[in-house]
Amino acid sequence: MPYFAVLYDYAPGSDPLREHHRAAHRAYLNETDHGTVAVVATGPWSDGEPGALLVVSAPGPGELHAMLDRDPFRLHGAVAQRRIRSWTPVTGPWA
């Protein structure tokens, strides 16, 4: 199944929103029943930039968009922009 790198850019001033919805956001990403979509790894940028990276396996972008649209961070306006790039790992455990 193809992999995708999802880059979240957080909305300016969304710190209180993210703090309030962080537990629901993480619980949602950790759910095992996203149909054909599997969340492989997630986490915020460690350099202080407001955003995060999600690595996701999905049959295609349609299923991925549908799953990400239900993320509490997106539902409550914490994500200003979401960029999705298809990704082909050639080394490592996901290759």
Rank of each mutant, 00 (worst) to 15 (best):
P2F: 12
Y3M: 12
A5L: 15
V6D: 00
V6R: 01
Y8A: 01
D9T: 06
D9F: 00
Y10N: 09
A11Q: 15
A11G: 14
G13H: 13
G13M: 13
G13Y: 01
S14F: 01
D15I: 07
L17G: 05
R18I: 02
R18K: 07
E19L: 08
H21Q: 10
A23D: 13
A24C: 02
H25F: 00
L29Y: 11
L29F: 15
N30S: 12
E31L: 13
T32L: 03
H34Y: 05
H34R: 14
G35H: 06
G35S: 03
V37W: 13
A38C: 09
A38G: 04
V39K: 04
V40P: 05
A41Q: 07
T42M: 04
G43H: 10
P44Q: 15
S46F: 00
S46L: 11
S46T: 05
S46D: 01
G48K: 06
A52W: 03
A52G: 15
L53V: 14
L54P: 08
V55Y: 09
V55M: 10
V56T: 02
V56D: 00
S57F: 07
A58W: 09
G60F: 03
G62A: 08
E63R: 10
E63W: 02
L64N: 02
H65Y: 03
M67G: 01
M67R: 14
L68W: 03
D69S: 15
D69V: 12
D71N: 04
P72I: 06
H76N: 14
H76C: 05
G77Q: 11
G77E: 04
A80M: 00
Q81S: 14
R82N: 06
R82Y: 00
R83S: 11
R83G: 08
R83P: 02
R85H: 13
R85S: 10
S86D: 10
W87A: 10
P89H: 11
P89K: 11
V90N: 06
V90D: 01
G92M: 05
G92E: 06
W94E: 11
W94V: 09
A95R: 13
A95T: 04
A95L: 02
